[in-house]
Design a protein around this nucleic acid. Structure first.
Lengths: 212, 212
DNA sequence: TGTTTTTATAAACACTGTTTATCATTTAAC
DNA sequence: GTTAAATGATAAACAGTGTTTATAAAAACA
């Protein structure tokens, strides 16, 4: 009696179809400009059908949110091969920024939007593996830096929060369009990517001076 | 013939009434949950009347955006009395964070939303006094720090961008609800304000070590 | 076969930003 | 003071949104 199994498969398939289509539309049109009706039209079903597979729009957002963290963790994977922890930290910064620029809408969903966090707060299950995993990668690298003599007098967790704050701030300012509107950047003709690289380099140099 | 003058006064008064009412509603309900109809109802006029005084919703947003930068600059005013530049820099960080928390919706409008920046990009007049003024206050303080021996080998502008990125990042993570969802913060029972203070202190200590 | 459960949808509800045609009031001109 | 033009305000409509509900078709089970 494989009917239940097949139905479960069909259901998952439909959910995937919806998510895939929604994500493609989000990349095309930006997050705020995609409606349930758009998604429904793209998969050639009626809008009401979407609600048979997802409770509401927030559940779709949250599902994509989870997928996005998986994507981010994948982007970090190659960096774990770098043995020098400070070099790895530096490359993690660059990779984080690359991810934010290449997947702008997804980055906003992961770290700028507050809906996913509110949804998470409503869940009973307070564990949040995807998010923790990314932050742990940073914390562990910083702990290893400390073993090599960097930022020795600092608390590992607090220092990680500091590094994350900086890197996120830089990405957020870029994605919201604020970077290019600072006077010096308006007048100079540096490209946004260059500004970000220089600012990151400045931060890295700052950290570099904290050895011993 | 003071008719034109009186009409201009009336017009400005109506615009102020609309803006004041809109801002009050934004503080109450959050930015996304305020509609033109809400504003119209609050001032006891029809929705269509709003469009006699503002081209569209974006123009209201932009007007509030300008007012918001005025408010931020006012918050910084008292700090200019502090003669020690590094102490002033440190206090500016605290003041910035206080402003972001106390005026959360306004902060999001000023630094998180991209609409105002897009609106600004569409304007012919590329000058943007309010925004420049706030950033200049930071740059000048950092330049004075450098004269006192701090971060001497760094470019003033790039260092300012770095400091702003960190501070904004911390505020943005707080306002989007991401701060409290880091594993250590979920498990520990530190309050968000305390986390922010500790992270800012970590950053200040980092900068402090860059003397000479 | 008949009955129940599942799946899909059209239509509706209560919203949104914005535009247009209409009406009343105020200003200007004679 | 009367008339014509400009202004101010609005009701109604348009096209869109997220979501719910009643209805019809299809599939699963007995």
């Amino acid at each position: 009696m494989g009917v239940r199994e097949r139905k479960a498969r069909d259901r998952k398939e439909m959910r995937d179809t919806i998510l895939k289509s929604a994500y493609r539309l989000f990349l095309e049109k930006g997050f705020d400009d995609v409606s349930i009706r758009n998604v429904a039209e793209a998969i050639e079903y009626s809008p009401a059908t979407i609600y048979l597979y997802f409770k509401d729009k927030n559940e779709i957002i949250h599902a994509l949110h989870s997928q996005g963290f998986g994507l981010l963790n994948k982007h970090f994977q190659p960096l774990y091969k770098i043995s020098d922890p400070f070099k790895r930290l530096s490359e993690m910064g660059k990779a984080y920024i690359r991810f934010a620029i290449k997947n702008a809408e997804m980055y906003k969903l992961l770290f700028v939007r507050s809906e996913p966090m509110e949804h998470l707060a409503g869940c009973d299950d307070k564990n949040w593996e995807e998010g923790d995993s990314a932050f742990d990668a940073l914390s562990q690298t910083i702990a290893q830096c400390q073993q090599k003599g960097y930022f020795k007098k600092f608390d590992t967790h607090q220092f990680s929060m500091m590094v994350w704050s900086f890197t996120h701030g830089l990405c957020a300012l870029r994605l919201s369009g604020h970077l290019g509107h600072v006077k010096e950047e308006r007048e100079g003709k540096r490209k946004l990517d260059q500004i970000m690289n220089e600012t990151l380099e400045t931060f890295i140099h700052t950290l570099e001076k904290l050895k011993q």
